[in-house]
Design a protein around this nucleic acid. Structure first.
Lengths: 177, 177
DNA sequence: GTTAAAAGTTAGTCGCGACTAATAATGTAC
DNA sequence: GTACATTATTAGTCGCGACTAACTTTTAAC
């Protein structure tokens, strides 16, 4: 992984969005990318130019976008990170889907490889060895039920209004394995 | 947590560094902050001015830095996030100390509260209920031993040499120009 | 107390990645 | 095929957070 071809978090987001759009429809349109990422269309154009120049997307002005071989590899890698994180959050930590997805979105760009792989292994472990594994998670879920006396500082539990929010939503990606 | 007083990842890093320096010695000097964060001293000055203006540090030019009440609260919160992550990585995922710390550094700024709390709870769970909990982690560690044939994409399996890492050290000190 | 080194500050630049406003190409009705 | 709506692009700006180079203040040695 030469430093030269490292992608910024932002470019990875674009790649990921394009990947999903290409999966759904045949190709990605700037408008759709823009809607998905909640970003101005002009920002999309800029990103596409950079990605094209890095040989990650097939792009010419006013045309529809697809991934190059290299781009697809990179995108798949991002998506894999995303799914690994989300899976872990949902399956092991029993985090609510939406939050899990949001967390994955944020963390996917910075998590060290070594830790990511441990997340993957842990989920595999849980799923493959039902006896001690599933039991553990099951126990944890029960444990989560009891509100605990917090020992650390003040922070009380998070309050959110279910309906409206201005957070970046980014709920693309519905499917795993 | 009003959006108005949200801190950037970078400012959180400064606060964290200052916190540690103040804990060790009585106060933080720009030089030390700069060394800790691997950043130019002039960047530190800039950050201190911003933090001072946000009422998070006590700072006047050429003087030593301490945290305000508000700054200490904020710093403690960052440190708590950092520790929670590192603990989880080490205690549950059996990640090597150095990597765990690096990962915590990166993730601490973006992880959603809800997930962070689950990490904390999971570690508590493991430590408080040794019977099913510790067993689970113990089993996982054994499981980690066996290299497994990976089912997902090409990425070769994680090969870890316990001693040496040659990872890039921090995202910050990238060479430009 | 003068002076040199060390520490800190300022000014100016750069890259990134968002934005708006204006413009251009494309697509669709009629 | 003209005329309008939609979509995409360009040009220019902004904020952030790093950097270097030049300057100032503080400190330590003599």
């Amino acid at each position: 992984m030469p430093t030269s071809e490292m992608l910024s978090a932002s470019l990875e987001d674009y790649l990921e969005a394009i990947f999903h759009l290409v999966s759904d429809k045949q190709a990605a349109r700037s408008k759709d990318i823009s809607r998905l990422l909640k970003v101005n269309v002009s920002s999309v154009t800029g990103a596409l130019q950079v990605l094209a120049q890095k040989n990650l997307v097939n792009y010419s002005p006013y045309e529809v976008v697809t991934l190059t071989e290299k781009g697809e590899q990179a995108a798949r890698d991002v998506v894999r990170r995303h799914r690994a994180l989300r899976d872990f959050f949902v399956k092991v930590l029993a985090v609510e889907e939406g939050i899990a997805d949001k967390g994955a979105c944020r963390i996917e760009h910075t998590i060290p490889r070594e830790i990511l792989e441990r997340f993957v292994e842990f989920v595999d472990f849980i799923e493959k060895s039902p006896v001690p594994g599933a039991n553990c998670v099951h126990e944890f879920k029960k444990y989560c039920g009891h509100e605990k006396k917090t020992s650390h500082n003040s922070r009380t539990s998070v309050k959110r209004k279910p309906g409206l929010r201005k957070q970046k939503e980014k709920t693309r990606d519905n499917n795993s394995k």
